[in-house]
Amino acid sequence: MKDETKIIEDTMEAIPVPSEKLDSIIENSFKSNAQFRKRTVKKRAGYVLAATLAISILGGTVMLNPAMANMISQLPVIGNVFDYFGSTSKPAYKEFGQLATDVGRTAEDNGVLINIDQGVFDGTTITMAVTVQTTKNYGSTLFFDGWPSVEGESAGNASNSFERVKGLGYAGIMTITPHFEKTPDEVDINWEPKVLLGDKKEVKGDWKLNFSLPLIEPEVLTLNELVEKDGVAIQFKEVRKTPLTFNIYYQQLVDPALLDDLTAVEAELKATDDLGNEYEVPYNGGFTEGGARTREDLQWSATIHNIDPQATKLIFHPFATVSTLEGSKKIYFEDIEVEL
């Protein structure tokens, strides 16, 4: 008699695996999941304010009129959401409060009131200031099952970053970067999250929010510069500037000979200006199109905030990470310069 653990192993090993069926299920699941999108979820530590606010909990979902919603958005605890983050954990947003469009859309269900305070559409990314009013502690940060979508546009990338605010619930900034065929003058946004999830607990609900944001016309500068090394090239396409954002667009091009099944390539940027300031250049996500030569020929957009107004030039320092199951290596490319 073999011991019990050997029996478990033998029993499991004896289960025949229909490998082709499983591969087919995986591949078809991706095809059917057209809404699948690249999402970067940023976590932040909780932030605590001393003030308190009594929150009335109503049953069911309600849509408030703009005046009432605006009153709610200007909470004594937090004031303007962009200003709040701009002066605390996210200085990148300190100018947004003055130039953003007031939205003031609110929906409530199961004791959770979601409010879209303001929004900005810069032609690439939609940035939304959001509060979630609740008396319950769902954890240090929040996530939602169900992302905002832009009517008539295919899903792109999305991210969110929520912080706990005592006396309010949560405040956060969400961004979505759809794949625009042509930049519209206005975007119609629908957001119907089904579940609010935190580190500690979650709640289901029926929240429905829809609103429109006008385009802040960007200034477009074409780049068309290419850097290349060790089988990876980065094609810089263009930058788009608004008073609030600086977006750069680039595509990585990977030699097919470099790729095996599990090779992954990720091109990123850092930047400095001619005054010596350093900037993070976080990407908004990447995507491949049908014409891409390899699955790794991802196109990226990335956004820089708060460029020094005295700077006249940005210098980008591109690098790529090539990962395989054996490890990863960095490739550093030549700098490229962009006149401001």
Binding site: R37, R39, T40, N157, T288
Partner: peptide, 8 residues
């Protein structure tokens, strides 16, 4: 971060 091919 959203890379479907890698997840697959």
């Amino acid at each position: 971060k959203g890379d479907q091919n890698t997840l697959q």
